[in-house]
């Protein structure tokens, strides 16, 4: 029972969605299923919040090391949740001022927006920006021209790095634009690499992945691959 029901759900949903591509009469079934999927995806956000709460509450009650940080997580979590769920400080929708809950919780000036603008945004953006530093460090310590393959990788990277800035233009601007060697200008060369070599490599990867996805999807829908239910079989 624990295994059979999910397998049937997967198979039925999958079958409906696949045939809705080919039998126009069943198209609306597919639409319903994908809309439900979106709703469930939104519920998954709630699940994410709930799991977070559970994990950190446990950490605090166990007095695990770093439980103070769990307090911070819980504190910011509940504060954000409160201002968002209860629409604290949100003015009503100007078209319906008599409905107090009609306001836009993400609108500029609301406390929820404040959390986004001054906490969420700088934190996530800075986390991402740190990559520039790591990439520099990796360049110095990890990218070695160990063999021919690595030389190809690094050489291509150099051409792209130079060709996509003013430096590339500056270095090879002496090559005439309409002469037979115009293709050697770095900005031209980088375009050529992208459109031929990169396209060829990525095309093979894309075709391979498409086959892999089709194969795996098939196994999942037929119940041959049950790893998503946990466990190997």
């Amino acid at each position: 029972m624990k295994r059979i029901v999910p397998l049937w759900i997967t198979a039925i949903v999958g079958l409906v969605l696949i045939i809705s591509n080919f039998l126009p009469g069943t198209r609306s079934w597919g639409e319903e299923a994908t809309t439900w999927f979106g709703i469930i995806a939104a519920v998954a956000f709630v699940l994410g919040g709930g799991s977070l709460l559970k994990v950190h509450l446990k950490k605090i009650s166990d007095r695990n090391s770093g439980w103070a940080y769990s307090m911070i997580v819980l504190g910011t979590f509940s504060a954000t949740l409160a201002v968002g769920l209860f629409k604290i400080g949100v003015s009503p929708n100007p078209a319906f001022p008599d409905v107090p809950w009609s306001g836009d919780v993400q609108g500029q000036g609301t406390p929820f927006w404040w959390v986004y603008e001054y906490v969420f945004k700088p934190l996530t953006a800075t986390m991402f920006a740190m990559l520039a530093f790591y990439i520099a460090s990796a360049a110095f310590r990890a990218f070695r021209a160990k063999n021919f393959e690595a030389v190809l990788l690094l050489g291509t990277a150099f051409i792209i790095l130079l060709g996509r800035t003013f430096a590339g233009y500056f270095m090879t601007s002496w090559i005439p634009v309409d002469g037979p060697f115009s293709g050697l200008r770095l900005e031209e060369l980088s375009v050529y690499i992208m459109q031929v070599f990169n396209t060829a490599g990525n095309r093979a990867i894309i075709i391979g992945i498409a086959l892999g996805i089709a194969g795996t999807s098939l196994k999942i829908l037929m119940g041959l691959d049950r790893s998503y239910l946990g466990g190997g079989d």
Binding site: A41, A42, V43, A44, F45, V46, G48, G49, L52, Y69, S70, I72, V73, L74, G75, T76, F77, S78, A79, T80, L81, G84, L85, V105, Q106, F112, V115, Y116, V119, F120, L123, T124, M127
Partner: peptide, 16 residues
């Protein structure tokens, strides 16, 4: 910790 707490709640609120 702040980013963990805020982002989980943020997603929840938006999803709702």
């Amino acid at each position: 910790s702040v980013v963990v707490g805020v982002s989980a709640a943020y997603w929840m609120v938006i999803g709702l």
